[in-house]
């Protein structure tokens, strides 16, 4: 399987990561080198060298899950400090570009 620059551009759009043309070229080379490596497990399973049948995906073991905390509202003392560090804030909210068109 060969991964093309066009596919890398589409992937970067999905991940919302801006790439320069040079970065697209380097990224494509990295993918074509690393993807066969990443496919080692499925390939070995198909070749019968690794038995994944019926094996559940790993989940970190939590032997003693913490008891759910009491559900209550507590004031955050950090609100003003966090907003002060924001790129742009107004009236106690983070500012983002408009996402809906005006009527």
């Amino acid at each position: 399987m060969t991964i093309t620059e066009q596919e890398i551009r589409a992937l970067a759009e999905t991940a919302k990561v801006g790439l320069t043309d040079g970065e697209v070229t380097a990224m494509t080379a990295y993918f074509n080198d690393a993807v066969p490596f990443c496919g080692a497990m499925a390939r070995a399973a198909r070749e019968g060298r690794l038995d994944l049948d019926g094996v559940p995906p790993y989940a970190p073991a939590v032997e003693e899950p913490p008891a759910p905390g009491e559900d209550r509202a507590v004031p955050s003392p950090l609100r003003d400090e966090l907003l002060a560090a924001a790129p742009e804030a107004r009236d106690g909210f983070f500012v983002v570009p408009r996402i809906l068109e005006e009527e």
Binding site: C38, G39, M41, A42, A45, L50, L52, V55, P56, P57, Y58
Partner: peptide, 13 residues
């Protein structure tokens, strides 16, 4: 399935 699930199962092994 080809990459993520195969890796997550291998991790169990």
């Amino acid at each position: 399935d080809e990459y993520y699930t195969a890796a997550a199962k291998t991790r169990t092994l």
